[in-house]
Simulated scan of single mutants.
Amino acid sequence: MTGSAGAFRIGQRVRVRTGAPPHHTRMPGYLRGHTGRVRVIQPPAPLPDDIALNAAPVRQLRVYTIAFTSHALWRQPGAPAHEVLCDLWECYLEPAWEPLKASWPSRSDGAASHDEKKERT
């Protein structure tokens, strides 16, 4: 995924992939599985994993600065909240789904949904 636009956009929620590759990686272990937001989109750069493996050719992948909340990463009650920024290559990230809404949307055919019927009674 090396296109000029990149796979993610500013403000988008992304999740750091889980799992540990059997080789050198610049993906910090403490971020794996955590969700953050894209803060900055940087130009493509050589993927360090490929360099460590002597892969040819070395992939040039977009790098993203991702913002994480300290509470989400370390869950320290009473500690002041701050933001943690980390530069991560595109292949380390995946889209994160937005949280589900609490109620179901209304039906497009005009019939009342189960929740709407319940509210009327």
Score class of each variant (00 low, 15 high):
T2K: 12
G3H: 14
G3D: 14
S4M: 10
S4A: 13
G6I: 07
G6V: 10
A7S: 15
R9F: 08
R9V: 14
I10A: 03
I10M: 06
I10F: 08
Q12N: 05
R13W: 15
R13V: 06
R13D: 08
R15T: 07
R17V: 09
R17E: 06
A20S: 00
A20H: 02
P21A: 14
P21S: 09
H23I: 10
T25E: 09
R26C: 08
R26F: 11
M27H: 10
G29H: 02
G29Q: 05
L31T: 01
L31Y: 02
T35G: 00
T35L: 01
V38H: 01
V40C: 10
I41R: 15
Q42D: 11
P43F: 06
P43W: 06
P44H: 03
P44T: 13
L47Q: 04
P48A: 01
P48W: 02
D50W: 04
D50L: 01
D50K: 04
I51F: 01
L53K: 12
A55C: 03
A55I: 04
A55S: 08
P57F: 11
P57E: 11
V58R: 05
Y64L: 01
A67F: 00
A67P: 00
T69I: 05
T69G: 12
H71A: 15
H71W: 10
H71F: 13
A72V: 10
A72L: 08
L73T: 03
W74E: 14
W74A: 12
R75H: 13
Q76L: 11
Q76A: 08
P77S: 10
P77N: 10
A79L: 05
H82W: 11
E83H: 08
V84Y: 05
C86F: 12
D87S: 08
L88K: 01
W89S: 06
L93P: 04
E94H: 03
P95T: 09
W97R: 14
E98G: 11
E98C: 04
L100F: 13
L100W: 11
K101V: 05
K101Q: 14
S103M: 07
S103A: 14
D109T: 03
A112G: 03
H114T: 07
E116N: 06
E116P: 01
E116G: 06
K117T: 09
K117P: 00
R120L: 06
